[in-house]
Design a protein around this nucleic acid. Structure first.
Lengths: 230, 230
DNA sequence: CTTGGCGGTGAACACGTGTTTATTCTAGTA
DNA sequence: TACTAGAATAAACACGTGTTCACCGCCAAG
């Protein structure tokens, strides 16, 4: 229901059954996540039977990887071409600008990131790559400060941009709004830009302290127990 | 398996069955998420039968809410007492400092945030509140720059801190590391501190542009279609 | 007209999993 | 010892869901 009717425009016409299924699956995965959507719901949205999905895609997992590839291709192409001037919160701005198409794909990727699928890795890497390039040119032409670690800075920025999407509900509520919207985004975007232009500390006490502390720690950091992940 | 053996110390002793089940559930929910863990796995870790879980907690959902309350209580108390000087990446630092106990609870909360449970809202709100208070005193004593919107700045900071946790796998890989660890955290932490002390733009071109653009847009922003969420 | 491939379907199967039920074990008490 | 309340369990149940299977039009080729 809900937004699923919106994408009917993308599947009501004379598309092939495979495309209809794929689009319906993308919509459902983006809206409910991979695990929570069942094949019968996808089938209903696509106007086919559940058996046909298996016939065409073999399994639910394979359907997912096909959707991954499709969304990834679209988003990556879009990320490469539309290298905006800021490049930081483009993602969230475009997300709100065109909820029907772009928003669907971005939401799909957000879900993929949360579930840590392989497509998410490629997507994040592409974003980092583009951002890093943007930063390097910015530093070269003098519009940006030089950084000790451009790569890490790019990662940090992508992280922040994506975080506003993945944690949109919590963020929205924390600011007292009901629904994510342009107002919420501007409310967060302004401090973000302020942070980007002049930071939030008045001097470099913290920075120096951290630098010396970490340099001193370099000798024994390897004897720490590592932490397991996923 | 994996980290679950680590928490055996917390449940192998003479705890009551309810506590054993609760701890086992917290470990499993933190490690695999709510949906992917089944009652029989929790029962096995706790050394009891699946039926006993239902007997004591009524349902899986209720068990979840009990775990939510328990973890929330611990984390909130800890957040309130240990108001560190920086307050920004404390979370991730403590996360790595004590993976066995604190890390488990933080991971639990990260999962709760991803699944957007009600406990996550309370937790995020608490963090934002604490951070905002920290910022206001920092601004008052002159160690921090004044901000046009302290609340939003606090939200932004909590967002960034939590993002490094929720997207730890993607972040780690984007920097070319195998596993999250102190090295990764320092690699991101340094640019973060640099960003916090002097920003990354050399002038306020972007900031001014955004400000004027948004002010001009204030007249017609309400006629945009809103986006639906979750 | 028959035939064979192809897109498509409904019903059934297999299995994981939350929950229920009947039963057993255990400890405290008279 | 006998009894009872509650803790704990194994087995069964209910149900959702991915997948398989037998079958059905339909349409071009012979």
């Amino acid at each position: 229901m809900f937004i699923l009717v919106n994408v009917c425009s993308a599947l009501s016409s004379d598309l092939t059954a495979q495309a209809k299924i794929r689009n319906a699956a993308i919509a459902h995965f983006a809206h409910d996540g991979f695990q929570k959507t069942n094949l019968r719901a996808i089938a209903a949205t696509a106007g086919v039977s559940a058996a046909l999905i298996i016939r065409h895609f073999g399994s639910k997992d394979n359907l997912r990887s096909v959707c991954d590839d499709h969304v990834l291709q679209i988003l990556v192409r879009r990320a490469r071409t539309s290298a905006g001037p800021v490049g930081v919160q483009d993602l969230s701005r475009e997300y709100l600008a065109d909820p029907e198409e772009y928003g669907l794909h971005v939401r799909y990727m957000v879900r993929a990131i949360e579930e840590d699928s392989s497509a998410a890795t490629t997507f994040v890497n592409t974003l980092v790559e583009e951002t890093e390039g943007l930063f390097r040119t910015g530093i070269a032409d003098g519009s940006m400060r030089p950084s000790s670690d451009v790569r890490a800075l790019a990662v940090l920025n992508v992280l922040i941009s994506l975080a506003t999407l993945t944690m949109a509900p919590a963020l929205t509520r924390a600011l007292g709004y009901e629904q994510m919207g342009l107002d919420v985004l501007q409310r967060v975007g302004l401090p973000m830009l302020e942070l980007y232009t002049h930071g939030m500390y008045v001097d470099d006490t913290m920075l120096k302290a951290a630098r010396t502390a970490w340099e001193a720690q370099q000798g024994d950091h390897f004897q720490r127990k590592d932490i397991h992940h996923g």
